[in-house]
Amino acid sequence: MTEDRGAQRLVELLADHEDDFVTQWVATVGESLSGRLSNAELERELRDLYAALRSGLASGALASREDGFAEIRSLLVELSRNRARQGFTPTETAISVFALKQVLEPSLTGSAKDIRAYLQLSRLLDELGLLTAEAYARTREEIISSQADQLLELSTPVVKLWDGVVAVPLVGTLDSARTQVVMERLLQALIDYNSTQAIIDITGVPAVDTQVAQHLLKTVVAARMMGADCVISGIRPQIAQTIVALGIEFGDIPTKGTLADALRHALDTIERDKRLAENRGSLL
């Protein structure tokens, strides 16, 4: 007996009972999803899967990675992605595949041929079920990382405060990934708004350790190399104490108590620079 005959038997079985099988399949899966997906939609999905499974088996393929099953693989990936986005669990997703075993079981005779066919189908459905689990997990990861990105965007707004002055109010814990985003945003804003003054306000930062201070210093140095000055504002008394206790040197970077003080400082600097750079006839 070659495997081809087993596939042949499966093709026959699936063809003979198509309507029965699909109806039962939809019922079994529908029950497990407890009505959170419309029956019409579920039936459409499963009918497509059924057709793709039949045509794959008809092509003589038996392993899920074979070309004959390309269509069902892509249908399942799509289905798993949708389930993941709609908030279904991995079990609720995989059951769409596994339920077909249950549906098929009663229509099998005890013949050796049928048993072999059933085992082959069972192996194939196991593989396809795992595929849904993988696609599901991948989609969740994408969702999580895009949410993390969105959170990062939300938590680091760089705003133009005045002509020539940009500010970034930092809220929450600063880790290196976030500081990197802040740094890039702030430096780009210097160019976009043609600003020579940048204010980093840390009123909303709960704690400053050596590493955070290091990140802030790097940002300030980078801004300086581009031709802009930074002021750090919003240093609360406790934070001032930790800074001193840790022996962190802010060097010659101006620090101010409040954002308002920092803005005044920035505007004064711009005013002074303008006066000193007054054109006295020639280029210099």
Binding site: E184, L187, I191, K218, A222, M225, M226
Partner: peptide, 9 residues
Amino acid sequence: RPAVAITLV
């Protein structure tokens, strides 16, 4: 450029 400044630091 910003990327250059970050890299130099």
